[in-house]
């Protein structure tokens, strides 16, 4: 791989997150560089998803500092993260079940649409033009992820693997600069996994999107990520390029010993 990895754009410093008595994250620091694929791994309950939730403002850590593009981030709501071009997918599919594939993906562009509800109601002003413009972008995403055939299908009628792909499409529709993926390949068969890997690499390659990826499949992680951070019981136990992490004593003990 001959891509350019840039400067640090996200720097997490001494993050601690508690839910009542449960320490989900304890004093975790790591950074993400522009254009890289950064994996977060660790056994079940290690705090991986919580980490993503901290990054895009769903959870607010009690301690620690988040530097995004060089400035310290104040406590913020998830919709603000979207406006800073951070998109994500969820571990448990979080599609809008009552909507079609197309509408789900169109929703991904919502921060870029400016028309207000009166323009929509009367179908004048920016309403029509925007719907068409954004439809074009959405169609590009649909082509990119090869889901043309299910465009008009209600998402709840799709098989699991395709739903995961639609969720990725919805995230990509926002043209994010940073994409957070929470186990995008969980529950997929080998073929679907290969497709998903290819899409992730293509996104990273073609659009230079920075990717933070949680994944349990070690083969995949070691294959596609540039750097890996390892969590266990809410603590960081390893951080580095795949080879380093693979040979790290603590990681082998804690992570691989846990039955993975």
């Amino acid at each position: 791989m001959s891509k350019k990895i840039g400067d640090v754009i996200l720097d997490l410093q001494n993050i601690s997150l508690r839910f009542g008595g449960v320490k989900a994250l304890t004093d975790i620091s790591f950074n993400v560089r522009e254009h890289e694929i950064r994996a977060i791994i660790g056994p079940n309950g290690a705090g991986k998803s919580s980490m993503l939730n901290v990054i895009n403002g769903v959870y607010h850590p009690q301690e620690g500092k988040i530097m995004f593009r060089g400035t310290e981030r104040k406590k913020m709501e998830p919709h603000m993260a979207a406006r800073q071009n951070i998109a994500r997918t969820f571990q448990n599919i979080a599609l809008f079940k009552g909507m079609t594939v197309l509408d789900n993906i169109m929703t991904g562009r919502i921060t870029k649409m400016k028309a207000n509800f009166i323009e929509h109601a009367l179908w004048f002003g920016r309403a029509k033009k925007e719907e068409l413009e954004h439809r074009k972008v959405v169609e590009e995403v649909i082509d990119f992820l090869e889901i043309q055939h299910i465009r008009k299908t209600p998402v709840n009628r799709l098989p699991y693997g395709l739903q995961k792909r639609v969720e990725l499409a919805r995230a990509l529709a926002a043209e994010p600069t940073m994409l957070l993926l929470d186990e995008p390949m969980a529950g997929m068969n080998v073929e679907e996994k290969q497709d998903m890997c290819r899409f992730i690499l293509d996104v990273n390659d073609q659009f230079g999107t920075t990717i933070v990826l949680i994944e349990h499949d070690m083969g995949v992680v070691m294959d596609i990520s540039d750097r890996v951070v390892v969590l266990d019981y809410g603590k960081k136990i390893g951080d580095g390029v795949p080879d380093e992490v693979k040979n790290n004593e603590d990681v082998i003990k804690a992570y691989l010993g846990a039955g993975h």
Partner: peptide
């Protein structure tokens, strides 16, 4: 007018909030 609202971004935002509010806010709603 209602039909126009529900087939455009306004309606999609409503339905997104209806179907999954966390995902809706993560998307920027």
């Amino acid at each position: 007018a209602a039909k126009n609202m529900v087939r455009s971004a306004t309606g999609r935002a409503w339905m997104a909030v209806r179907d999954m509010d966390v995902a809706a806010s993560v998307i920027g709603i």
